[in-house]
């Protein structure tokens, strides 16, 4: 399994694409929103938590279709399925690799964009913490969507349509943590619910994703 993780990371770094692209997209969102909304600091501070979370979510979405589609096209998915590691484990490792190259950098870079959006000082800790806890769920749920659409040609748009509704709870709790944190309110409840979604999704969804891949390869 470690070999698979190393391979996926290596491929992500070498072929560029997903890794830098997601971050660049995140940056673009943070630059475009003030241009659209206007430069008033108070307005930006109000919407910063939501914009940062929505931006991170869309940046995550960009590279989802690469999780399985590339392996499906070149035949690796067939060979991985017949290899000694269980398919469920393979899905989990691939979701982890996706998180390491998208979710983790987004989490690390988010405070910088928080400055651009005038996020109140008390919100930064919660921004990083909520993204750190929530983006793994985005990768795991996204891997499920990617598994459903792996056999569909040009399935990118379909993938977004399937995955975005599934992202709703994660988005709500994640943005809620930052919003409350920025206002200095108590954040424990949404934070725990967010962690619950991540843990629950990581535990259950790989089985659904593996089932979807088996059905597609059949």
């Amino acid at each position: 399994m470690r070999a698979l993780l190393i391979r996926d990371l290596r491929l992500a770094f070498r072929s560029g694409g997903g890794f830098g692209l997601g971050l660049a997209f995140f940056l673009l969102v943070a630059v475009l929103v003030p241009l659209g909304v206007g430069p008033q600091g108070s307005t930006l501070a109000l919407i910063a938590p939501g914009i940062l979370w929505v931006g991170a979510l869309l940046a995550c979405l960009l590279s989802l279709d690469r999780i399985f589609a590339l392996d499906f096209e070149d035949g690796s998915l067939d060979l991985l399925t017949t290899s000694p590691i269980p398919l469920e484990g393979m899905v989990a490792v691939k979701a982890l690799a996706h998180w390491l190259v998208t979710g983790l950098p987004l989490t690390v870079c988010a405070p910088v964009l928080g400055v651009l959006l005038n996020l109140p000082a008390s919100g930064y800790v919660w921004l990083v913490l909520s993204l750190g806890l929530g983006t793994p769920a985005l990768s795991v749920i996204g891997a499920f969507g990617a598994a459903l659409t792996v056999g569909v040609k040009r399935g990118g748009l379909l993938l977004s349509l399937l995955v975005l509704p599934l992202y709703v709870p994660t988005l709500i709790f994640g943005a809620e943590v930052v919003k409350r944190g920025a206002l200095g309110m108590e954040v424990a409840t949404p934070l725990m619910l967010l962690a619950g979604i991540t843990l629950g999704a990581s535990a259950m969804l790989p089985f659904a994703s593996a089932a979807a891949i088996r059905i597609t390869l059949r």
Binding site: R7, R14, D74, G75, S76, L79
Partner: peptide, 13 residues
């Protein structure tokens, strides 16, 4: 061990 039409190679490696 299965060997298909497609080799499952990664061009970047």
């Amino acid at each position: 061990a299965y060997g298909a039409h497609a080799d499952g190679l990664k061009g970047a490696l």
